[in-house]
């Protein structure tokens, strides 16, 4: 009875995790009704990635650089990295609730490509970093929960053989049994589901921004001409 209840919880958790995994994209219909914008998430991802890649390749070609020529000498690779990822100060920065400060350069071909697709580079960077790390934020909250800490202590005692130090890698079968017997599996599943709801509410604004900017980028990607070189005019600030 207990085991089947735990199993159901795991199923619920798996479903929640799947939702969260696709959470980057499962936040809206995605540029509905725009010609050339596919409806499926995978196809949309492919469209965005393909468009970004074309913009990056053209940008690098303008500087006489190419992603194709490998291997590269260290100096050549350094030149390519500066052109691709940017150089100088890291203008883009977001500190996550987990404590990590994620940074990136605002110049470089990758940043320029994203600026053309998503429009507002700073807003997109913030939304992408936060939404992309919702799962990490959930995990950090679960780890900080006293019930989880207590269960983890029980699990550690369970996998540690008598008179021996705690193993670096417990036998998988023992680890599984201890996950059940310590209550860690059940507590983790319950906390993850609850924290997921909390985190999605906390990051509602970023989820909305993520969806809006992604929809914009999908439209731009679908309309991207064969030549992606910037037209004359204030396309980039």
């Amino acid at each position: 009875m207990l085991r089947s209840a735990a199993h159901i919880r795991h199923t619920v958790l798996a479903a929640s995790a799947a939702l969260l995994l696709s959470g980057c994209t499962a936040v809206g219909p995605g540029a509905p009704g725009t010609p050339g914008v596919p409806s499926g998430t995978a196809a949309q991802d492919a469209l965005l990635k393909g468009a970004e890649h074309r913009l990056v390749v053209d940008c690098l070609n303008d500087q006489g650089l190419s992603l194709a020529s490998r291997p590269r000498a260290p100096d050549e690779d350094r030149t390519l990295r500066a052109a691709l990822f940017g150089a100088g100060p890291r203008e883009l920065s977001v500190t996550l609730a987990t404590g990590a400060t994620v940074t990136a350069h605002q110049d470089g071909c990758l940043a320029t490509a994203r600026h053309r697709l998503y429009g507002d580079q700073r807003r997109w960077f913030r939304a992408q970093v936060i939404v992309g790390n919702l799962r990490a934020e959930v995990q950090a909250r679960v780890r900080a929960d006293p019930a989880h800490r207590a269960a983890l202590d029980r699990w550690t005692r369970c996998v540690t053989p008598p008179d021996r130090p705690r193993p670096d890698r417990p036998d998988p079968a023992v680890a599984t049994r201890c996950g059940r017997e310590s209550g860690l599996d059940e507590i983790r599943a319950r906390l993850e589901a609850a924290e997921l709801v909390t985190v999605r509410a906390l990051r509602r604004d970023e989820l909305t921004a993520y969806r809006q900017l992604r929809d914009r980028a999908l439209r731009r990607a679908a309309e991207l001409p064969a030549s992606t070189h910037p037209q004359k005019g204030p396309t980039l600030s």
């Binding site: 991802d45 990635k49 987990t98 404590g99 400060t101 994620v102 940074t103 970093v129 990490a136």
Partner: peptide, 29 residues
Amino acid sequence: TICLAPGQEVGYNGAANDRGDSHIWSTGC
């Protein structure tokens, strides 16, 4: 503990510092 898109870097992380044990490449976060 963290998901990074291409070009993203983390110079320090108070929470994930000294915690990593494995990684995978993925098409998205």
